[in-house]
């Protein structure tokens, strides 16, 4: 049941992605991106990842707002000159299709959907599930991993966000260079 629902949602996401790529109106493309993100959030919920579903939907909303802010009141239609030539698109599609065919056999070697490898071997995830609560005191095992076992990653994540915020602020400043002769 879960598998079929995910399958249908994924097909919808792929169709949405094709629409995003082919739509001339940029604002519609951005809104379609929001729809795909929403679908992804539902898939996360189906896959028993509610933490991720919440983060994904919140991030989808905020990136949608930022992208709409970037496109609205600006040039919102893709002009024909922005299209690549037909031949280059076909070549690229063929190349990607070839790549897909080449790696397709590899999917059969991945663990079967629904039977992950962590359950079979002595893996760290088993340890988290067994002792996460007693070691960290947090009943939410995902939070226990994010903020205790792998808190160093979370520091990195916060710093990545800090860096890109600072980057956006620094890119959008008005005076980048001082005028020759000015002292401050």
């Amino acid at each position: 049941m879960v598998e079929i629902s995910i399958f249908i949602l994924l097909v919808f996401m792929i169709i949405g992605m094709v629409f995003v790529l082919e739509m001339k109106n940029l604002l519609s493309a951005v809104v379609m991106m929001g729809a795909i993100d929403f679908g992804l959030s539902v898939i996360f919920l189906l896959l028993s990842a509610p933490d991720l579903a919440i983060v994904q939907i919140a991030v989808a909303v905020i990136s949608l707002v930022i992208m709409i802010r970037a496109t609205i009141h600006r040039e919102i239609v893709e002009t024909p000159s922005q299209e690549s030539t037909f031949s280059s698109r076909v070549v690229m599609l063929c190349f990607l299709f070839l790549f897909f065919i080449l790696i397709y056999p590899a999917f059969s070697l991945l663990p079967i959907f629904g039977e992950p490898i962590f359950a079979e071997s002595a893996s760290s995830s088993m340890k988290y599930l067994l002792e996460g609560m007693t070691q960290t005191g947090s009943p939410n095992i995902v939070t226990a991993i994010v903020l205790d076992f792998r808190a160093y990653d979370t520091l990195g994540e916060a710093i990545v966000l800090f860096t890109s915020v600072l980057g956006a602020v620094s890119v959008l400043r008005y005076r980048n260079r001082k005028k020759p002769g000015s002292s401050t």
Partner: peptide
């Protein structure tokens, strides 16, 4: 990411 921001630093 820091290096992307630094490349654009001159504006």
């Amino acid at each position: 990411i820091a290096s992307y921001a630094l490349v654009a630093y001159g504006g």
